[in-house]
Amino acid sequence: MTLYHFGNCVILLYIPYYLTYKYANLSEYGAFWKCIQGGIIYAFTQLCKMLILATFFPANEASINTLSFSNFFKSSVDLADIVGIYMILQSIPGKGHSKVMTAGIGWAGAEILLTRFLLLWVGARGTEFDWKYIQKCLESNINLMHHIMTAALVWLLSRHDLSKLQSKFSPFAAVIILLLLSVYRTVLIDSFSTWLLIDPWSIIAIKGLYTIVLGLVMLNYYTRLSTLIGMY
């Protein structure tokens, strides 16, 4: 029965990735190994982040969820993710949509393999039932959306034609703001929720909503740029 529960969690965790991969038609581009390549770059980036964290930030577990400057600086290390995604985009010769999708799925896929699978293997098979494993799986689904969005933003930023977009507000500044909002998403929502003492289910809902809203704004810019450069 607990193995069955583990199966439930795995299905919840991986099927959305598979659906995304399939309906983005990545298989037509032979993108599978490129996703794996993206995953390797993900692992490398995380290693670098850990080195930086271990070197410059003394461990103080106590205040992990409070809003403070040290936590803010700590999560600034996540800016390295942007560099990592940029490297993936550079190393993928594909064009347009498939390139962004490949980078996002590769990145997110490596993340769930490295951070979630062991957790489920050890935790969800135990005798003890806990909702947190289902919650982690749902959160991973949201992270998939989040990483694809980040990849698209990085791609936008890397385009020189971005400034040619007609807009009342500098599209360049808008993309930067969106990127910052997505990088600091975790620290924003976590400190907000510890402050207001929100239960885990609401946190997932807030994360989902936050990501969808950012995603819609980003999609607006993305659509306009891809129309501008004639890419479908």
Partner: peptide, 17 residues
């Protein structure tokens, strides 16, 4: 935009999620 685009079936694509 100046670039003329042939409306293609956009069922493949993108920001999928």
């Amino acid at each position: 935009e100046p670039v003329v685009s042939v409306p293609k079936k956009s069922n493949r694509k993108d920001k999928h999620r």
